[in-house]
Design a protein around this nucleic acid. Structure first.
Lengths: 181, 181
DNA sequence: AGCTTGATGTCAGTGACTGACAAGGGGAGG
DNA sequence: CCTCCCCTTGTCAGTCACTGACATCAAGCT
């Protein structure tokens, strides 16, 4: 988290996106506010949207490793809920940063699109992990997608409104899901 | 489906994307092949990707109206599966067009991103419809997302490989889903 | 000191997309 | 038949996202 060009760019981006909106801030403006050139911006981030989606990589690794600590005999969906609960502390710690970021995303269709892509990647990673634990191909896909859908919806609601807590919301979601079947 | 500029643009786009790839075909090339100017392309489609995502609107309406014909007392997920089965004939009829289109999408990350966004919109529409039938807010969201995830996965697999039929695949998916819980 | 490596700056170019304005063609009403 | 109007398209100029090629410069290694 040093004061590197990369992190300055990320902070500048959130600030400008929040103040002027995503569409009407140029990559050059972000770079200027961060004290670098536009070219440097694109060296750090593949495109203008990507500047907001770095945490996903961290989250992905957290989820990947968390899944290892769940006994193999726990059924797939239940496994995922345990994994989600295990990353709650991380999300809690990041809420101050995540909240304004999510506000920007929620206000910008182009960014929501990217977020969906990231969620899909996360879901695919979870599915892979489940397959590694002996879950059938399709079932792993379904479990991962269902899990991610719930996880995304719950965290989004929790970023808009801090209470109830993430844990409580997950409990409730798990019950809702059970009712559904 | 007349021979309008719009449809010519769509056909030209699929052709060129298939032959040269999405990234290395320009909007101007598509327009030229369709016999119009680049400006006309962007009058018909908000952006270069959107030229491939028109059918979604038709599908959405089909799903919307199909849901009306399911008795209110059928539980949510089961409702959705009935709805999906009811649009199978439409999808069957469109397979010749959908298949090459999907091949292009599957080969292009930028297009997959857009497809996810369209699916999310479809899911939201289904959720709305379910809420209109008295399903609780969150449960409607979950049911719709679960349903769409399965529907998307099933149709994708079916576009890659025509047999088993869509109906059979839906049956199997429904069973897989039940197992999951 | 000399060399290498990684991050940054500079510059020129391509292509997606937009706004403003003009032009043509067919249909409705006189 | 003429005229007005609307809808679609063409033209042109401009902004901005993004890229490749090359130069610079500081930090660490030998």
């Amino acid at each position: 988290m040093a004061d590197t060009a990369r992190t300055r760019l990320q902070q500048a981006a959130v600030t400008l996106f929040r103040d002027k909106g995503f569409d009407s801030t140029t990559a050059a403006e972000i770079a200027a506010l961060a004290g670098v050139t536009e070219r440097t911006f694109f060296r750090h981030f593949a495109d203008k949207r990507e500047v907001l989606f770095d945490g996903q990589a961290v989250l992905l690794e957290a989820l990947r490793s968390a899944i290892e600590n769940v006994p193999q005999d726990v059924p797939p969906l239940q496994t995922l809920f345990r994994v989600f609960r295990s990353v709650v502390p991380i999300l809690d710690a990041n809420r101050p940063f995540s909240q304004p970021r999510q506000a920007v995303i929620s206000a910008t269709p182009a960014l929501q699109e990217r977020e969906l892509a990231k969620m899909a990647a996360l879901a695919e990673a979870l599915a892979q992990a489940l397959r590694g634990r002996g879950v059938t191909d399709d079932r792993a896909t379904y479990a991962a997608q269902v899990g991610m859908a719930v996880f995304a919806h719950v965290t989004l609601a929790w970023l808009e409104e801090a209470t109830p807590s993430l844990g409580d919301r997950l409990d409730r979601a798990e019950r809702d899901l059970a009712d559904l079947m």
